[in-house]
């Protein structure tokens, strides 16, 4: 049991490293000569561009969160812990959700600034998905696992089907914990946004007092939201001691 877990974990680390190196090789090959802060043909300020992009990210965020929750339920309820697919998938979720949001933020900046993949929509969406799915899935999985097995047993013992048990018991009982995980994910997304805005602002900044205040204004609001969301997350989380 532990042996195979170790195996799958190492495979995951290996694959992620390979993907990372391929990515780095590909991006280094991209010529960076004429893409210095010109933003393609649009010639808009990167910060405005980012804001527009971020606005469009909201529905995508919503959809991704829902998908992650469904994904977590599928893993927890339909794949047994010894299931091969689950054993292969789980290490990625754990590793990716453990990466600090700062890294994702820098990745996003890198993409927006250098416009790596044809549209920054695609790249931002990819980053968002990479950011949201592992954390939401992991926290939802934990929330589901924290539902007392005895409640499940009791529901099965009077003839409940899997769906009935999930919808009547598991979902209601884990709802708050799932929501808490979602809030935590949102605060992570916002942190990434804050990092993006901060860096982009600094890149275009002439460091006058006015722009510094502007930066603080821009970032401060987002950081406040981060704070609010993480407080909510910890408040609604049930004490699972």
């Amino acid at each position: 049991m532990d042996k195979s877990k170790l195996l799958y974990n190492s495979i995951a680390v290996l694959i992620l490293l390979i993907v990372l190196s391929i990515y780095l090789i590909l991006t280094f090959k991209t010529p960076v000569a004429d893409s210095s802060l010109s933003f393609g043909s649009m010639k808009v300020e990167p910060i405005t561009l980012l804001k527009v992009r971020l606005f469009w990210m909201i529905p995508i965020l919503f959809i991704t969160v829902i998908l992650s929750i469904v994904f977590a339920f599928i893993i927890e309820e339909w794949l047994s812990p010894t299931n091969i697919i689950r054993q292969i998938i789980e290490p990625y979720i754990v590793i990716l959700s453990g990466i600090p949001s700062m890294i994702y933020g820098l990745l996003a900046v890198y993409h927006v600034v250098f416009n790596l993949i044809s549209s920054s929509y695609t790249s931002l969406t990819l980053i968002l998905i990479l950011l949201v799915i592992p954390t939401t899935t992991l926290s939802t999985q934990t929330a589901i696992r924290n539902v007392d097995t005895s409640i499940r047993n009791a529901a099965y013992a009077v003839g409940g089907t899997k769906w009935q048990v999930i919808f009547d018991h598991v979902l209601p009982l884990s709802a708050l914990d799932i929501l808490s995980g979602v809030c935590y994910t949102i605060s992570r997304v916002l942190t990434v946004t804050a990092v993006c805005i901060l860096v982009l602002n600094l890149l275009t900044s002439d460091f006058s007092t006015l722009t510094v205040i502007n930066i603080v204004n821009n970032v401060g609001i987002i950081l406040l939201l981060v704070l609010i969301f993480s407080i909510i997350a910890s408040l609604i989380k049930k004490n699972t001691g």
Binding site: S150, N153, V158, Q164
Partner: peptide
């Protein structure tokens, strides 16, 4: 689920 209904169960702890 049908079997579990026909052969219902009460556990050690009242759940």
């Amino acid at each position: 689920s049908e079997i579990a209904r026909k052969i219902s169960m009460v556990f050690e702890k009242p759940i």
